[in-house]
Design a protein around this nucleic acid. Structure first.
Length: 716
RNA sequence: GCGGGUAUGGCGGAAUCGGCAGACGCGCCGGAUUUAGGAUCCGGUGGGCAACCGUGUGGGUUCAAGUCCCACUACCCGCACCA
């Protein structure tokens, strides 16, 4: 009986399929449970053990909810657009469509073999025109609502992949896809105005059940700071606006700093005495990689702008202006007021360039270092004597607003979402350029704007999408005036399709709208979303943004998409290192299925340690789980009419409670340990009734579903 | 630098409220079975001959601390010249 698991598995897979065991019904009278896992990217290498762990956790919860009588939706789909597929299609010399279909087929087969109880009647594929029609539709809705704009700015650019990357896609200065160094390049870019939703995304965190660290990471990523904008008059007549979180230290300002790329500099080039030096410095900065700028360069550098002087608006003092790369063009206004006495960076800069340091907050020793703590205000006119930071900031802001030289303001670290990619395998951006009418959206009834067939889809060397080479795609008529026009040829980024997929699952075949309202009213929000930590500041932020936008325009009924989020820990290689091909420590989950069966694989990934922590793979521990499941299968041999001892009965009751509770808190490891102990105890007693065996199998079945089927078969 | 986390046998990890530290599994040791190996089953397994000592380090609170408080160390993750 022990080695026929492959047959048993196939048999139950067919049985589950035939009786549609896992299809959710749209019976709105039942209590619902919407369990969501991050749909996979169907790569050519197939499933990773990490997928198994991620899905097995929520799978156990969904199976439990079904037993509890819920109408459970546990869907699956494929997030299939993107560079990895496109790059490997180029390498293999086949079309990304062909490759995607092949990969999806492979994943589907693998997922079925592992026995996940997904509702296969609702599969979505982000590359299906019937799906991306609605991705484009949402984009156009955003366009309509002023959340899409074009701008020429410095952007993250990957020279290797030849694409513009968003901030989220270039964390740590590395390309998220190929990990090469990202450079800064001035480009014309499509943006989604996600910063307009920064406050809503922050506030939304109050009402959802996410672990504290995930909330914190999102808060840090959004990076809200409160302060003030203040205008400084320049000697050339113009006003220079800066952002500061400490307007109360205005009397301590002894110089100003602008980012090297600040437009004011070129504007007054004629009046600046040392433009050559300034341009040379700027040139130098743009060559530095992110790594050099943030890690290596401890020492401050900069150039004084000769012939440009600012006036401190509160005391009329004339102060010099410098450019330095410690001020970023992309944050605040690209210029700062420097208060060396109370800011470490300004202090360092002032020391190096011999600039005055004026104390305005008592409590430190500014001859030694900047003092950033609290204290009594001094040398500060109307602020003198205040001792509380909050009070002094408040008073400073009201004074600035009264005099009309500044106002309260808020800044975010989060930047707008750079949304176009110069490649092929993605959703075409549905915009048309007309000489007369400007940017015109593709009419809704012409969606989906299909990706045209293409022989050679290699990226262009000129920073243009391969789509730009297809005249029949590019040339079109303006929907407004009917004149000759050109299509946008860039595509959307990888994250577009996944920003709303959980809605499409509710109504995957609807061709009238992206999802029926009544269905959303019943199913949303997602009750439990499990996934990886790597998506916390990418997919999670993006999809919350899209969903909140859809809420604001009345298209969905909940402001937040996910009411509860959990994250599984990584599975490391048996050497304790991250699994990677180059280290040769990758475990193929299907090898485990072949060798021991799917139940063993699923039991092991949940037993190997704390679900939320990373843990190394161990082949011999897998065998331990195999032994355990074999021993459970053999329990049938000791079933008799004789009841168990009172003590064992108590253990059964305890196990029911423990397993029930532990699944809820994702402590699968202790739930399984408890069942192992119970197994040992049953064997030492030596017999049990078939009713008791049923209880045992039920407790186990959320993790090892085939076994349950096997036991049922054994009884027939 | 800022934010978050972790630290318990040879290994992964238990310990729900401050109450017998090390559940469960792996590994290892011994035994049974076997021509042998593998597989399986049974028993043992924190350290120390012992008194005793043991949850990263140093203090503290308590009848009682892995758990609470203070100070530190190491490692991991995220952000990072964010004004």
């Amino acid at each position: 009986m022990k080695n026929d698991f492959n047959q048993t598995e196939a048999k139950w897979q067919n049985k589950w399929k035939d009786c549609k065991a896992f299809e959710a019904s749209d019976d709105f009278t039942k209590p619902k449970f919407y369990g969501l896992i991050e749909f996979p990217y169907p790569s050519g290498t197939g499933m990773h053990v990490g997928h198994i762990k991620a899905y097995s956790g929520l799978e156990a919860i969904c199976r439990k909810r079904r037993m509890q009588g819920y109408n459970v939706l546990f869907p699956i789909g494929f997030d299939a657009f993107g560079l990895p597929t496109e790059n490997s299609a180029i390498k293999l010399g086949i079309h990304p469509r062909t490759l995607t279909n092949r990969n999806i087929a492979k994943f589907t087969e693998q997922l079925n073999r592992v026995g996940f109880s997904f509702d296969w009647s609702r599969v979505v594929d982000t590359t299906d025109p019937d799906y991306y029609k609605w991705t484009q539709w949402i984009f156009l809705k955003m366009f309509e609502n002023g959340l899409v704009f074009r701008d020429t700015t410095l952007v993250n650019y990957c020279p290797n992949c030849r694409v513009v990357l968003s901030n989220e896609d270039s964390q740590g200065g590395k390309c998220d896809i190929c990990h090469s160094d990202v450079i800064q390049k001035s480009k014309d870019v499509w943006y989604l105005r996600i910063t307009a939703y920064a406050d809503k995304l922050l506030q939304g965190l109050d009402g959802v059940d996410y672990p504290a660290n995930i909330k914190q990471m999102q808060e840090n990523w959004i990076g809200r700071s409160a302060g003030a904008f203040v205008s400084f008059k320049l000697s050339v007549g113009e006003e220079l606006c800066i952002y500061t979180t400490r307007p109360d230290t205005l009397f301590g300002v002894t110089f100003m700093v602008m980012a090297p790329e600040h437009p004011v500099i070129e504007k007054y080039a004629a009046k600046i005495g040392n433009m050559d030096e300034i341009r040379a410095y700027r040139e130098n900065c743009s060559k530095k990689t992110e790594f050099e700028r943030t890690q290596l360069v401890k020492e401050k550098t900069g150039v004084k702008i000769e012939g440009l002087i600012a006036v401190n608006p509160v005391n009329g003092k004339e102060i010099p202006i410098y450019i330095s790369d410690y001020v970023m063009m992309g944050y605040g206004t690209g210029a700062i007021m420097a208060v060396p006495a109370h800011d470490e960076r300004d202090y360092e800069f002032a020391r190096k360039f011999g600039i005055d340091i004026i104390e305005v907050i008592k409590g430190g020793d500014i001859s030694n270092q900047a003092y950033t703590g609290d204290g009594e205000m001094v040398n500060s006119g109307f602020l003198d004597g205040l001792t509380n930071k909050k009070d002094s900031i408040k008073k400073a802001i009201s004074a600035l607003e009264e005099k009309g030289i500044g106002e309260e303001g808020v800044q975010y670290k989060m930047k707008d979402w750079a949304f176009n990619r110069q490649r092929y395998w993605g959703e075409p951006i549905p915009i048309i350029y007309c000489n007369k009418c400007g940017m015109v959206p593709v009419p809704y009834d012409e969606l989906p704007l299909k990706l045209p067939p293409l022989e050679n889809f290699e990226p262009g060397t000129d920073g243009e999408s391969p789509l730009a080479r297809i005249d029949s795609f590019v040339n079109c008529k303006c929907p407004k005036c009917g004149g000759d026009a050109r299509r946008e040829t860039d595509i959307m980024p990888q994250w577009a399709g996944s920003s709303w997929y959980f809605l499409r699952y509710l109504d995957p075949h609807n061709d009238k709208c992206f999802c029926d309202t009544e269905k959303m009213k019943y199913w949303m929000p997602v009750d439990w979303y499990n996934g990886g930590m790597e998506h916390v500041t990418r997919h999670m932020i993006y999809s919350r943004f899209w969903h909140r936008f859809l809420y604001d325009i009345g298209c969905v009924n909940t402001p937040e998409p996910y009411s509860k989020r959990t994250a599984q820990g990584m599975i490391l290689g048996s050497d304790g290192e991250k699994m990677s091909k180059s280290r040769g420590n990758v475990v193929d989950p299907l090898d485990v299925v072949d060798l021991y069966g799917a139940d063993v694989l699923r039991t092991y990934v949940l037993f190997m340690g704390d679900y939320g922590q990373s843990a190394p793979w161990s082949d011999s521990s897998v065998k331990g789980c195999k032994r355990f499941l074999d021993r459970v299968a053999d329990l049938t041999e000791i079933v008799s009419g004789k009841g168990v001892t009172p003590q064992l009965e108590r253990s059964f009751h305890k196990a029911v409670k423990k397993v029930t509770d532990d699944i809820e808190s994702m402590k699968f490891n202790t739930a399984i340990a408890c069942l192992m102990s119970l197994t040992n105890e049953i064997y030492s007693v030596g017999h049990l009734t078939s009713d008791e065996l049923k209880v045992f199998i039920k407790l186990l079945s959320v993790r090892a579903p085939y076994l349950r089927g096997n036991q049922r078969a054994a009884r027939r």
